[in-house]
């Protein structure tokens, strides 16, 4: 039983279910205001969708989906978005992550809070998702950098 590849059931199920899982992850991220969810949970579900493809299609083949060499950069970008929003709020005259003081003139403070939270959650989602994928790739010792 050498050279055993995956059975087609698992592979096709992975290909078919991964988009659904990723969409549910994005939904959880967007609807953090109304229900349970938010950046961290959405990021975990997104990472689950990507890792499902990594596991079923194979680490090499699923590089076309999310490349391993980009994940660490994206993780850093997510962290920069999170911290950067807070620092911009400080520069605008408020406290750290004080969304009402973001220097965006054409928005009401209430809307600014809404979009500020969404923006920070985007950073968290990106960071958590790509961080988890980076951990998986690192454990597997996939190095396509």
């Amino acid at each position: 039983m050498t050279g055993q590849t995956h059975s087609p059931i698992i592979e096709v199920a992975g290909r078919g279910l991964a988009p659904i899982i990723q969409l549910i992850g994005i939904y959880v991220f967007f609807h953090g205001h109304y229900g349970p969810g938010g950046g961290f949970q959405g990021g975990v579900l997104l990472a689950a969708g990507v890792l499902l493809l990594r596991m079923t299609v194979g680490a090499e083949n699923s590089q076309a989906h999310v490349a391993a060499k980009r994940t660490l950069t994206n993780c850093a970008i997510g962290a920069v978005i999170f911290v950067g929003t807070g620092i911009v709020a400080i520069l605008g005259g408020g406290y750290f992550l004080d969304y009402a003081h973001l220097p965006v003139q054409w928005l009401e403070p209430a809307y600014m809070r809404y979009y500020g939270i969404l923006f920070v959650e985007l950073g968290i989602t990106l960071g958590v998702m790509t961080g988890l994928i980076t951990i998986y790739d690192d454990i597997l010792e996939v190095d396509y950098a």
């Binding site: 698992i10 899982i21 549910i24 609807h31 349970p36 975990v44 890792l51 499902l52 596991m55």
Partner: peptide
């Protein structure tokens, strides 16, 4: 309406966990 999302997430993680164990 709130717990449905949690159950859906749990089902997803259960499935991905089973595949990962295999």
């Amino acid at each position: 309406d709130m717990f449905v999302d949690i159950a859906l997430g749990y089902a997803i993680l259960n499935f991905v966990g089973a595949i990962a164990m295999a």
